[in-house]
Every structure is written in C-alpha cells, then in structure tokens.
Amino acid sequence: MSEFEPKVVAFFCNWCTYGAADLAGVSRLDYPPNFRVVRLPCTGRLNPKFIMEAFKRGADGVWVSGCHPGDCHYIAGNYYARRKFILLHTLLESIGVDPNRLRFSWISSAEANKFQAMARDVIEHVKACGPNLTFRKAELQLDLPEVA
C-alpha cells in the first residue's frame, strides 16, 4: 500500500462512544479500519499513562471519547476526566506533540453518524501528521515480561 496507514489507539467509554461504535456497526456506517479500541467503563478510568503508553509503543494517534458532559453513566466521571484531559492536552501540545495526533470527543451511544464522521476526521488528521517517528520509543521491547 502506497499511502500511509496510521495505527490509532482509541479509548472509548462503554456506555456512550463504545455504544455509538456498536450502532455505527448496526447501521453499517463505514469508517477507516485503522482504530484499535480499548473499552473502558468510563473516560474517568483513563489514566494519562495509557495515552503515553500508546504513543511510546508507536501509535500514530490516540482518540479518547466518552459521554457528553452531563450524560456520564457514573454521574461525574467524565467531568473529572475532562480536567485531566485539559492538562494532558495542553502539556502534549506545548511540548510539541502535533495536536492532530491526539483527539478528544464526546459521542453518545446514539450518535453513530457523529461517530463515523469523527472517525474519518481523526484518521484524516493523523494521516496529515505522517507516521509517528518522533514521539515514541526508539526500540520496542515487545516481549511480554514488560507487561505481565
């Protein structure tokens, strides 16, 4: 394949965006196949370390998406998460990580169309950045002991 096909790690909350992705499936709304989804109960579960780990391991992009503010299945999980995102987003952007590599969104489980549009948009932006050569580990030790 000539064109660069990015790998994007996506973190979705179970109740909203994961559901939107399910519904996008039911509705057969196609989008680029470049995502690998990690399902979380809530975006409040997302530790900034996860995002760093994805980049370290060579992800070309990271997409975090959860319930709209006010819609959190756990009342306020995404409100707390949002504060973490504000810090992380500013920090990574400030130190020179291309903001196109990191996307945050709110997509409810009914918004399959928004999901599709966002998925396409994320890939388009990550593609514009090119492969992640600068914000990753030089050598990956992919053996299991490091994770187990």
């Binding site: 503010p69 006010g70 306020a76 409100y79 707390y80 949002r82 504060r83 973490k84 995102f85 504000i86 810090l87 987003h89 903001p99 996307r103 945050f104 969104s105 709110w106 966002m118 948009d121």
Partner: peptide, 16 residues
Amino acid sequence: PPLTVYQPNDPADFIK
C-alpha cells in the same frame, strides 16, 4: 486541588 473537583462548564473547546 483542581483535579479533585470540577465545574460542569469547565471550558474545553478542544474536545470535539
């Protein structure tokens, strides 16, 4: 500390 609280309208325009 700011990470132990929130405001329902914390501005975060970068979240699409």
